[in-house]
């Protein structure tokens, strides 16, 4: 029996070997190359990178945009998932279609749509002027706010779905029990519903954040070259400047952030799981 389950374990070998060679090895080589100098290992490219004021601005902008995108998505997603978990019949279908249809569409299609929406003669501006909110057209395209709104829109389904799936499985009798024991609604939410839904919040936030720090298509269509992000800097240094050492260094920085997010979120998820 043990022999057979060992043989079954071998079934994982082709897939793992493929990923190890085509995906993990190139990434390790990239990290290695970024610390390889003319004579031995060196961190000089990193020191140069972090010393440069322009790079610092770009790094902070990337982190800030990713964080605000995640927060905006979370603020919209939590109540939505809460309503969706209580929805039945046609409303549940409407919610599901509204989440799955955008998820099945390419990022380019959605980012392009937002670049139309944000134009100064675009739909949002004409609507704002029509209802008298503003007198003249507001500059939206090429602003950081536009980027955050557009990105939150694209990543929203990935935030709603994990929260929805924990909220739906949450036994509705738990808050009721708390209530029958005299708990106030606020106490019930902060002490019962919210802690139990945290694994969904962590999963959704980690995924959204890691998509948002590395997004490329959305910023290049909504803010363009005016407000660079790390991804755009990587693309520029490889595709236009042909500066491979710089590109590799920025790639390694972005990769380190992404790996940190993956490890931190799985550690957090593990702790939350253990506590319950």
């Amino acid at each position: 029996m043990i022999a057979r389950s060992n043989r079954i374990a071998l079934l994982a070998v082709p897939g793992l070997a493929f990923l190890a060679i085509i995906y993990a090895l190139p990434l390790v080589m990239l990290l290695f190359k970024s610390i390889q100098g003319a004579e031995g290992l060196t961190l000089v490219t990193y020191i140069d990178f972090f010393r440069d004021e322009f790079n610092q601005t770009v790094l902070w902008r990337t982190l800030r945009v990713a964080l605000l995108t995640t927060l905006l998505a979370l603020v919209i997603a939590y109540p939505t998932a809460f309503a969706m978990a209580r929805a039945k019949g046609i409303w549940l279908t409407v919610f599901m279609v509204a989440l799955v249809l955008p998820m099945s569409l390419g990022v380019i299609v959605k980012a392009f749509a937002w670049s139309i929406l944000f134009r100064s003669n675009g739909f949002l501006n004409t609507t704002l002027q029509a209802i008298g909110m503003t007198d003249g057209p507001v500059r939206m395209l090429f602003t950081e706010t536009a980027l955050i709104v557009g990105a939150a829109n694209v990543f929203l389904p990935f935030m709603v779905l994990p929260i929805y799936s924990v909220l739906r499985q949450l036994n509705s009798s738990l808050p009721e029990a708390a209530s029958s024991l005299g708990a106030t609604p606020w106490f019930r939410f902060t002490r019962v519903t919210l802690p139990l839904s945290l694994p969904g919040v962590v999963a959704g936030s980690a995924f959204t954040f890691s998509l948002a720090i590395s997004m490329y298509v959305i910023p290049s269509l909504i803010v363009g070259e005016r407000q660079q992000t790390l991804s755009m800097l990587i693309a520029r240094s490889f595709l236009y400047l042909r500066n491979e050492p710089l590109g590799s260094t920025i790639s390694a920085v972005l990769l380190a952030i992404a790996i940190f997010v993956v490890l931190f979120s799985s550690w957090l998820a593990g702790r939350l799981g253990a506590r319950q």
Binding site: I22, I234, L254, A258
Partner: peptide, 20 residues
């Protein structure tokens, strides 16, 4: 590990593959 490519920055994976 098998699900991790989902959360890795696409451009970085692309660059690494190109060099490899």
């Amino acid at each position: 590990f098998t699900v991790s490519p989902l959360m890795m920055p696409g451009l970085v994976v692309g660059v690494a593959m190109l060099q490899f």
